[in-house]
Amino acid sequence: MTGKADEVQVITLDANCPELPLVEAGGRAVALVWPGTGATLRSMHHFALEAGGRTVQQRHPGEAVYFVKSGSGSVTDPEAGTDPLITGSMILVEPGTAYVFTAGEEGMELLGGPAPHDPALYAHLTKAA
């Protein structure tokens, strides 16, 4: 699906969302809003982490923002330590900061991503196109 800057799109979490290699263990990440949907300034990903699931370490040139939709866990900045997360938490990651999300016993569902989008996250998708 491609969009134009002057049109409204309704984005849904479904089987058409491309998978992203952002989960190291116990879960899945997909792109909801990304250049493939016509986005130029923002990205939004959906992470579904199982109990103890963990993302790969990420670091982006721009900032990133995440919302914990459900569950709990933590976010770790290797240079600054680990902070707990609960349902409703918002996380702002400054440009160039490394981070990893880890789900707690009940798992964790996150929505968010870097802004502007990080082209490196979609390289595997553009090669296949």
Rank of each mutant, 00 (worst) to 15 (best):
M1I: 10
M1T: 14
T2D: 05
G3R: 10
G3N: 13
A5H: 11
A5P: 00
D6M: 13
E7W: 12
V10M: 06
V10P: 02
V10I: 12
V10D: 01
I11A: 11
T12F: 06
L13P: 00
D14H: 05
D14S: 11
A15T: 09
A15K: 15
N16P: 05
N16H: 09
N16Y: 04
C17I: 05
P18S: 10
P18A: 11
P18V: 10
P18I: 12
E19S: 15
E19G: 15
L20F: 00
L20G: 09
P21Q: 14
L22N: 11
V23K: 06
V23F: 03
A25I: 10
G26Q: 01
R28V: 00
V30P: 10
V33A: 14
W34C: 08
P35W: 02
A39C: 05
A39S: 15
T40W: 03
T40P: 02
T40R: 12
L41Q: 15
R42A: 13
S43F: 04
M44W: 03
M44F: 06
H45S: 08
F47K: 04
A48S: 09
A48D: 12
L49M: 02
G52M: 00
R54C: 14
T55L: 03
T55I: 03
V56P: 01
V56R: 13
Q57P: 05
Q58N: 07
R59D: 00
R59N: 06
H60R: 05
H60A: 08
G62A: 03
G62L: 02
E63W: 03
A64S: 15
A64E: 15
V65G: 11
V65P: 02
V65H: 13
Y66N: 08
F67N: 08
V68G: 06
V68L: 00
K69M: 04
K69R: 11
K69Y: 03
G71T: 02
S72Q: 13
S72D: 13
S74H: 04
S74C: 08
T76R: 11
D77N: 14
D77S: 10
D77K: 02
P78Q: 13
P78A: 14
E79R: 05
A80S: 11
T82C: 05
D83P: 03
P84I: 00
P84Y: 07
I86K: 05
T87K: 02
T87F: 08
G88W: 10
G88K: 06
S89A: 14
S89F: 04
M90F: 09
M90V: 13
L92K: 09
P95R: 13
G96E: 12
T97I: 10
A98I: 04
V100I: 14
V100S: 11
V100H: 08
F101Y: 14
T102I: 03
M108N: 03
M108C: 04
L110P: 07
L111W: 08
L111G: 04
G113K: 10
G113I: 02
A115G: 14
A115L: 15
P116H: 13
P116D: 09
H117N: 15
A120W: 10
A120T: 10
A120Q: 12
A120H: 09
Y122R: 07
A123R: 11
H124P: 04
H124C: 06
L125K: 03
K127H: 00
A129P: 01
A129T: 01
